[in-house]
Design a binder for these strands. Sequence first.
DNA 1: GAAATAGTTGACCGATCGGTACAGTTGAAC
DNA 2: GTTCAACTGTACCGATCGGTCAACTATTTC
Lengths: 206, 206
Amino acid sequence: MGRTSDARERLLQSAIDLIWTNSYAAVGVDQICERAGVKKGSFYHFFPSKTELALAAYDAHWESIQPHLDAIFSPLVPPLERIERWCHALYEHQKELYDRYGCVCGCPYANVGTELGTRDDRIRARVGDYFDRFQRYLESALRDLTAEGITLSAGVKVTAQSILSCELGLLVRAKVANDPEVLRELMPSVLRLLAVAPSSPTISTP
Amino acid sequence: MGRTSDARERLLQSAIDLIWTNSYAAVGVDQICERAGVKKGSFYHFFPSKTELALAAYDAHWESIQPHLDAIFSPLVPPLERIERWCHALYEHQKELYDRYGCVCGCPYANVGTELGTRDDRIRARVGDYFDRFQRYLESALRDLTAEGITLSAGVKVTAQSILSCELGLLVRAKVANDPEVLRELMPSVLRLLAVAPSSPTISTP
DNA sequence: GAAATAGTTGACCGATCGGTACAGTTGAAC
DNA sequence: GTTCAACTGTACCGATCGGTCAACTATTTC
């Protein structure tokens, strides 16, 4: 009973878009509503506060990218190629945002994590969850890599953490330089972290 | 002629402290004034805008840490030990802030760079300058390392970029996890990036 | 078709934002 | 000791912030 609406979904999408390309504090509730074509009264019908909207929006965003991560890190793909695919997809995604908005947007989770990390424990912890989830993709690939007989220069978990750190830092540098090409350094850096010799310029296929 | 005052310096210090432990947008001009014990009228006597204050504050902050960086990266210190000292100082500094404020604050430059990167070109470019400056310390150490006959797994510049990325990403992860101990991973990651075997648990002294 | 519920609307709130105006006070230079 | 610029204090500005509220409309269920 009662009417139905997709206003909630539009609000989630607007929130991610605006916060990603600006920042949490720089985007107001009014602005999110206007982009979503929703009046303020409706906003507070769906969400009790701006913070709750943000949490819901980031959950929705993760759910939207998870299938892509599942595909990129498919166990059917050779483990090193999974990581190479991910590096490439990361660059392409940021390049696309750069072409559309004129600026490197960086990692949406890291952005809000650094902005609100010291002020909102719930958002901080949630961002940490996303990092952990993503790290598991890396760990799985690294375990499969060792199963192929390749010896890492450190443990699987520690190596995955280093790769994640390197990625996050590279996204910061790319954003600050406003140059997506900075992200091309990712795969070479990963290879050096693995202490695996960079074999051929193309993806190594059997 | 006219009277003198250290209100300007107090404002610069307050701005760094507050923005570092919170965020740029979360800290108001009133708040900065109150902490500095300065009235708003005086604020706008010294600075034409909040943005100008931020730029001046970050310049002042860099000037305050540069002597420490000069000491840590002294050419009289063995190059690998310079980097090890830096990793240690970074941890100690963040730990100190954590003990004082109860939260990991991360890199002040990267924080404001990610927050305002897409909205204020001047601040973004300035943060890029600080990154470049710091990278030169690393490059110098790496060049001296190669002069000792040690071969890096990649070029000096690229390696320095990777180390910087790893540091920035680690600071993001430490902030999001609100755990300074995350930063202990820095030196091991750096060693893997250098492809130098981690020799002894203590600093290698001649 | 009546009732109940889900969603919409626009006016409105107090607080705070960055910034302004300007008279008043101080101290160094001469 | 006068002068003048440097600094301080206070009151105030319009805009915007996140959030509230009650009346209203549409839709589904029975």
